[in-house]
Design a protein around this nucleic acid. Structure first.
Length: 399
RNA sequence: GGGGGAGUGCCCGAGUGGUUAAAGGGGACUGGCUGUAAACCAGUUGGCUCUGCCUACACAGGUUCGAAUCCUGUCUCCCCCA
């Protein structure tokens, strides 16, 4: 590839220092040493982040990258946030072993709105430029052909995801093949100097360089960051696998979810989210609590963690019902317990029956015996019905 | 255009005429242990008016005493050749 933008000059000490600080937590920053040179050139850099508004909520996984962008901003650089409203319709094949469905434009717009609102909890609005890639990707087919002419199938098929799918006889749609081209073209349009993303984005990020070169533009450097695993500690955090902690999760929920993260991932979480080592002197439980406190404070304010932790202790350490249990009106007298459990917790009656038989249903903390199944209204009124460890309803006689 | 293959429960995946609500695994749920961690043990995982009944193996028909399993048509997907 072209090296027209490469100059062999030695960066100043200050530029080298700044670059080193920025790349400290990165997995890779390519080409080697390039960032220091870019910083040394003096002008504020344009840092690109493309986001796919496929799901509206930002979770902690996103914040790893957003925090990095924030660091760039603090050094005086400019973030260009690209809402991939157009590419979202294509679907990023990264890390996918199957195709994903196309989204309709309304959903994408709504998602983008929410996403940005949340992103500015971390990013500095004044140093952020927001662009929608439909702005330039809604192009004529002759323009599209020009774009396509600058890449090759062989180059695209190099990527791991595609190799795997080919080997497994899985489909690869033409549209997916186009994805890197489109994302790469974003870099051309906005004159990106640096593009940041998760390690799973490496191919796409590098492809942006190819596209810029093909269009005679200076090439961006790229930085990949570690991927934060989800609550299961194994898979990448994402909404679709349900293993995510959303930045808008209520404090109690956020606290609880953090506590469920496996010990084995503690260090990773501390490093990626707080850029510190976990304080292990008082054991992993305390280190995890501290992590939960700090995260809740970050997204809900300094006052929030105390109440969230108390809620946690109440429910899971002391095994008591929460203060504010939702009411459930019941009318029958006597009431049939399986029916009651089914409506209270939105499960099937069969499931309710099984749970009772397995000792998973409690009334005011007392496990219900398998018999009897009918209770008088007096026996139930005002008491707390519980399914499993964390589902509660206060029974209220509505008749 | 031609040839071949596949569609099973939340997911993967066995099953090629009857003891199959359907092996096995994953996930999930419940109980035990506990630090709502991990590991481990046990149970559950279609619905219901539950010792029984109903609905289910892409969809619609058909053959049969009896079908997820055989036949026909439809839909969807994959591979190969051109």
């Amino acid at each position: 590839m072209s090296n027209v933008t490469q100059e062999a000059s030695q960066p100043s000490e200050e530029a080298a220092r700044q670059a080193a600080a920025l790349t400290a937590t990165a997995v890779e920053a390519l080409p080697e040493g390039r960032l220091a040179q870019q910083i040394d050139a003096g002008a504020p850099l344009r840092i690109k982040l493309g986001i796919d508004p496929t799901a509206p909520d930002i979770h902690l996984g996103h914040t790893v990258v957003l925090n990095k962008l924030r660091e760039f901003q603090e050094d005086g650089h400019k973030v260009v946030l690209i809402i991939g409203d157009y590419t979202a319709r294509v679907g990023d094949p990264s890390g996918r072993s199957d195709q994903r469905p196309m989204l309709d434009p309304e959903a994408i717009d709504a998602n983008a709105e929410t996403f940005m609102e949340q992103a500015f909890k971390i990013l500095d609005r004044d140093r952020t430029e927001v662009r929608y890639n439909s702005e330039w990707l809604k192009m004529q087919s002759d323009q599209l052909f020009a774009l396509m002419a600058r890449s090759t199938v062989a180059r695209l098929l190099e990527r791991d995801d595609f190799q795997k799918r080919m080997a497994a006889s899985q489909p690869i749609s033409m549209l997916e093949l186009m994805y890197p081209l489109l994302q790469g073209y974003d870099s051309v349009e906005i004159d990106a100097d640096v593009e940041v993303g998760g390690t799973d984005q490496k191919f796409n990020l590098l492809f942006g360089r190819d596209m810029q070169a093909a269009f005679g533009k200076p090439q961006q450097s790229i930085m990949t960051l570690p991927i934060l695993p989800g609550i299961d500690g194994v898979k990448k955090m994402s909404k679709s696998t349900g293993n995510y902690i959303g930045v808008t999760d209520p404090p109690e929920e956020m606290f609880g979810k953090v506590m469920r993260v496996p010990d084995a991932n503690l260090e990773e979480y501390w490093q990626l989210l707080l850029s510190e080592d976990p304080p292990m002197e008082e054991g992993p439980n305390e280190a995890k609590r501290e992590l939960a406190r700090r995260l809740v404070a970050r997204f809900h304010g300094e006052e929030a963690p105390a109440a969230a932790e108390e809620h946690f202790n109440r429910l899971f350490v002391r095994h008591e019902a929460p203060e504010d249990v939702e009411d459930l009106e019941f009318g029958e007298d006597p009431a049939h317990m399986p029916a009651l459990v089914a409506t209270a917790f939105n499960v099937s009656r069969s499931e309710a029956r099984r749970s009772i038989a397995q000792g998973g249903v409690k009334l005011d903390g007392e496990t219900l015996p398998p018999e009897p199944l009918d209770y008088t209204a007096n026996e139930l009124d005002g008491r707390v019905l519980q399914l499993g460890k964390r589902r509660f309803r206060r029974l209220v006689n509505g008749s």
